[in-house]
Amino acid sequence: MADGNCLISNEWICGEYVRTRGQELTDATLEHVWITLASVAIGLLVAFPLALLARRWRSVAGPVLGLTTILYTVPSLAMFSLLLPVFGVSAAVVITGLVLYSLTILVRNIMAGLASVPEEAREAARGMGYGPLRLLFGVELPLALPALMAGLRITTVSTVSLTTVGAIIGYGGLGNLIYEGMRSFFKAEVLTASVLCVALAVVADLLLLGLQRLLTPWARKSRKGTT
């Protein structure tokens, strides 16, 4: 069967669709990538101080963990809908929602990572005259990296997948194509966008895994050290 016909016969796999709508696919993928990147980056920037506060004061830890868990329980469609009146129809709605979701895992994993730092390492650094900041960034953070990166990978993968729901307000990256294809019963569009979305998640996960290997060269020697 000629390729042109697969658009007419509405087949699932259609090379012609990919060829003729290449630009649309690229744009959607790029939107997907930047929404994900922005959400995860902001999520990290918010989660890190939160985790430090929660570690410093026990009275903060309970409310922070409780609140992020509650936020995680809210279904995505409801989350975006609740943020709609705050930001209006804009990418900020989707990004804020995704940031709020990312906090749950990031805060917990950063805290778990920091808690796993051996007390001896801390003592040694203090003995060498490390101040609190240098202790944090020079000793504790590198040792907490495996747990942090594990959290970052989970967050990134679920953020990629959740971004699709942003289609409800038109900022869903590849989700927009899925939404559009759903309304016009265009199978090739839905399947192509879905596959790209999963591929995006897998690629992001592998990139982060590579980054983790790069950042924690000491973990490579003993295989048990990797998370």
Binding site: S161, V190, S194
Partner: peptide, 15 residues
Amino acid sequence: GRAVPTFAVLVLLLL
């Protein structure tokens, strides 16, 4: 389960 978007699966099954 984390990597596959729920929305995509819902739509794929519908079609």
